[in-house]
Nucleic acid binder design. Structure first.
Length: 159
DNA sequence: GCCAACGTTGGC
DNA sequence: GCCAACGTTGGC
């Protein structure tokens, strides 16, 4: 059994918030059109991995809860749909360019951990999210960062 | 709305 | 393969 890994995934709450995920139970993470983020989803994310759910373009932005990977990567169906905003005419069904994973809801933090608060934590120094110019919508998170974030939020780090 | 920090595209 | 132009992300 491979060791569990941890990730952070960004979503704009106006588009799909953690409340939407709680309501739906699980969702497929469509629309990622960045190769680095795609590679992480396609090649690295495994069933049962932990996900920090981050609200971007929010006031304030921050980590709002936990999810976990409920299905490993498969081609993002939206890339083949000409009516979809994520349609990619250069992607072929027999050679898909974009992949996604499914995630399922796990928990919502009693209070969100804002980006500003996270920046104040010495224990999170070096976290990818806090690095200057970091825009990846899917990022790796270390086991110790995961435990620290859960502790700060006052929730169990167990999934 | 601004703009820094990227990433992608396409001419050469 | 270089790099200018352009597009996007996302904090502020």
């Amino acid at each position: 059994m491979a060791k569990r890994q941890y990730w952070l995934m960004k979503s704009e709450p106006d588009v799909y918030s953690i409340d939407d995920l709680e309501r739906d139970g699980s969702t497929y993470w469509d629309g990622v059109r960045n190769y680095q983020a795609r590679n992480l989803m396609r090649d690295k994310m495994r069933l049962g991995d932990g996900v920090l759910y981050y609200h971007s373009n929010a006031t304030p932005p921050g980590i709002v809860g936990l999810a976990k990977v409920s299905k490993e990567s498969y081609p993002d169906p939206t890339q083949f749909d000409p009516k979809n905003k994520y349609y990619d005419p250069k992607s072929k069904e027999d050679d898909p360019r974009w992949y996604l994973v499914d995630i399922e809801y796990h928990a919502t933090f009693p209070e969100m951990l804002s980006l500003g608060f996270l920046r104040e934590q010495e224990s999170l120094e070096g976290m990818a999210l806090l690095r200057k110019g970091q825009r990846l919508s899917v990022q790796p998170v270390s086991a110790s960062e995961w435990r620290t974030v859960c502790k700060l939020a006052g929730v169990s780090s167990k999934l």
